[in-house]
Amino acid sequence: MTGKGPILAIAHNTLRDAVRNRVLYVLLFFALVMIVASALLSTLSYVERERILQDIGFSAIRFFGAGIAIFMGVGLVHREIDRRTIYTILSKPVTRAQFLLGKYLGLLATLWMQLAIMGASFWLVSGISGAPFDGGHLTALGLVAVELAVLVSIATLFSSFATPFLAASYSLGLYLVGHLTRDLRAIGEAGNSEVVQSVTVWIHRVLPDLSSFNRVIEAVHGIPIPNTEIGAALLAGLAWCTAFLGISVVTFARRDFR
């Protein structure tokens, strides 16, 4: 068997495995509680209730989305090696790259399903509370989906060679740094030191700029997001996913499964 057959089979199986994970439902439950609670919390304010509601709702979606991505992603490959299920899979005509891509796509499908559920709940709560929900909100949610794709590729990379604890630490670290690279660059450029400036520019170039996927402020305040910026974010997301998965494939191909 060649091509996408094994990838889809492994992706489908990963999805089936994930949707039976009870921890996933607990996290999803808390995310939905947060989204619903945003409506209640917004009533505590006399001003900009709708914006507070949507800020909290978007934050819940992004926070729990990232949490689930890291939580599930870090064990994605390690669990297969630990349980030795990988032995029977790789003894079939399946390349290691196909295995990794299948696992990645399976988890990504799971996360996007969850994002769809959270997004639908957010839309419902916004509707009930009288807050607007338009194309800007959909774009912001779409970019959260892209960010999750990048985050899962990061978790897949670390899962391909590290234990879940280490993989979680690395993934979380990179996620946090990824949200700071743009600010770091801005700080460096505002300073007088050329060294600091070149270091921060270098960090911004080498590490993913995850803040480019965060367009919540524009969505909540009704500020249009230029198509060029959306396109750039999509391309950047695709490039980072390709890069992280490419490194994962190379790393994984060299591993011995003892």
């Binding site: 068997m1 057959g5 094994p6 089979a9 492994i10 199986n13 089936r16 495995d17 039976r20 349980r83 030795r84 299920t85 032995y87 029977t88 899979i89 079939k92 005509p93 399946v94």
Partner: peptide, 24 residues
């Protein structure tokens, strides 16, 4: 393999269908 572990959320028929799929 020795002491095999399989995805225990699947039935016998489902797991074999999965492996048959991978086996071409």
């Amino acid at each position: 393999p020795e002491s095999p572990y399989f995805y225990d959320f699947l039935t016998g028929r489902e797991i074999l269908d999965f492996y048959a799929n991978l086996g071409g």
